[in-house]
């Protein structure tokens, strides 16, 4: 199968829009219950149970290959799950179709590799979703996009193409693109791992300010400074399981499981 299959709704696009569900502020934004997933024989998610409250920032830490990216990607159903259930904002994730596209537009996602649209300017990257998905007037969408670019500190780069920007600038543009959809939650999959060290700070600053504004965030990262300052909870993931979780200070100071102790000793020596 083509690796770039732009999977998305095509069949059954006709279902009517469900009435807006009144959301209970005490209800969690993201709930995963008994989620399992396999890639062929590989059991990548093992009985994952996770609940993320509104406005909560959760950091996920774990060795490479433990399933952190897959976990993130199941939340907006970029990856379908094998069994279990996932709710976002009180609604169970819909199957492929218009309803899924609508849900994805409410979940911001930031990738390790930025994934800015290479053939569009930074401004067009940020305004594409509002114009095509939300049907905003192009002029209004561009104005809002400019304000977001200003917020992430790259308004002066608006007319450049992604390849002309530094990694840090590209990632900030990608965050602005996600924010342009006015998402209810944001997923960050190792947003600073592909960056040169001197650019990590500028991206973390933007993320910290989002956290301060009350954005619900799931962040896969090994940046302990960010975890300590911005997160309410840190979760350790290994071999597809959520092994241990605690408030960040305790998580790093008093790891309970041997696997976390071992993992922390490895990343702390660097």
């Amino acid at each position: 199968m083509a690796p770039t299959r732009p999977d998305g709704p095509a069949a059954g696009e006709a279902e009517p829009a469900p009435a807006a569900v009144a959301t209970d502020p005490g209800e969690p934004m993201i709930v995963m219950r008994q989620v399992d997933k396999w890639f062929g024989d590989l059991h990548v998610l093992r009985d994952v149970n996770l609940s993320v409250a509104r406005g909560e920032v959760v950091v996920v830490i774990g060795p490479s290959g433990s399933g952190k990216s897959t976990l993130c990607r199941t939340i907006n159903r970029l990856e379908p799950i094998g069994s279990g259930q996932i709710w976002f904002d009180g609604q169970e994730l819909p199957a492929e179709g218009r309803a899924l596209a609508r849900l994805r537009s409410e979940v911001g996602m930031v990738f390790q590799a930025f994934n800015l649209f290479a053939h569009k300017t930074v401004l067009a990257n940020v305004s594409l979703g509002p114009i095509r998905v939300r049907r905003e007037k192009p002029a209004a969408a561009r104005e809002r996009a400019m304000a977001l670019l200003d917020r992430v500190g790259i308004a002066d780069q608006a007319d450049k193409y992604p390849a002309q920007l530094s990694g840090g600038q590209q990632q900030r543009a990608a965050i602005a693109r996600a924010l342009a959809m006015q998402p209810k939650a944001m997923l960050f999959d190792e947003p600073t791992s592909a960056l040169d060290p001197e650019m990590v700070g500028e991206v973390l600053d933007v993320m910290t300010s989002l956290a301060e504004d009350g954005m619900t965030m799931v962040v896969v990262t090994h940046e302990m400074g960010f975890a300590r300052h911005a997160a309410r909870r840190a979760i350790f993931m290994a071999d597809g399981e959520l092994v241990e979780e605690a408030p960040p200070a305790e998580f790093f100071a008093h790891p309970r499981s041997d696997r976390l102790k071992d993992f922390l000793s490895k990343i702390l020596t660097h």
Partner: peptide, 14 residues
């Protein structure tokens, strides 16, 4: 593949 994925993640239809 990341291009199509990013497009899906902002809610574009197929």
């Amino acid at each position: 593949p990341g291009q199509a994925e990013a497009a899906r993640s902002i809610g574009l239809t197929f």
